[in-house]
Design a binder for these strands. Sequence first.
DNA 1: CACGAGACCTGTTCGC
DNA 2: TGCGAACAGGTCTCGT
Length: 303
Amino acid sequence: MPELPEVETIVRNLRNGHPREVRPVNPPPEQSARKVREPRPDYETAPLTSTSLLGKTITEAAVLWHRTLAEPTPEAFFPRIKGQRVEDITRRGKYLVFHLSLDYLLVHLRMSGDMLVTSVTEPLAPHDRLTLSLDDELRLAFNDTRKFGRVWLVDNPETVTGHLGPEPLDDNFTTSDLYALLTTRKRQIKPLLLDQTVIAGLGNIYTDESLHLSKIHPRTQSNTITQAQAEALWRNIRYVLAKGIEQNGASIDWVYRGGGFQNYFQAYGRTGEPCYTCGTPITRILVGQRSTHFCPRCQPPTM
DNA sequence: CACGAGACCTGTTCGC
DNA sequence: TGCGAACAGGTCTCGT
């Protein structure tokens, strides 16, 4: 679920101590706001705090669902993490990276994960899978309904993130880098963009939005992309990711409240609704087993 | 190498 | 209203 902008938002909140605010956003003109539901009851007992975790020391740890902890073993986890201080919190692709005194704690949220900061005096939320207690009675909980998420405690973060492709928002990620990534492979472009070893951070939403803005059909063979198309795609990938971050991510259903990017969707989730450019209904197809939304007129298949 | 199917999980929404 | 099917922001592994 969470893609690069959602992970970046969570990282910034944990690092800077700003709660994700649930506030109205200004929908772009002539675009209808998408529904955002009320918070789920279990979240109401788990209020977000505005406290930064930087400088806090870990005093307790609990693994509530054993498969959540990828490394090390649950028995080795607490003795090793106990007493380590949170020096920094960063992001690599869709991974959260906690820089501790001696080790790195990496978290991947997969489809339904979230990081909740509460007081240790609060009851656990229904889907808390791993919790850390820190100074000042703080609790950091990895909450993950579907149990797909994973946590690693390692001395070298590269052992977990080493397989990832470049960061699309990096200054040194250029349009010719993207062109090379596409043309040196012969794959459908959408699954290629979703492949984290090729480029890190894109998921289903931001891929559909990028391809739509770039007027590229999601099944286009990557090696047939022109230089001009690659340039447009490079610009639009960076645009939607930056816009997503600016909007604190996208909030759909009950996940990631506070985001506003759902109000800017042009393709994702708009099946049957008119394309903002040409009025043709947005179509949903399956590409690489993923739900894919596009405009059949603006994004024609390349023959 | 590229791609599809199935697995991993729980919860909500859809369609009859 | 009820109930099973379909679907969900991700990734991994296996077989062709």
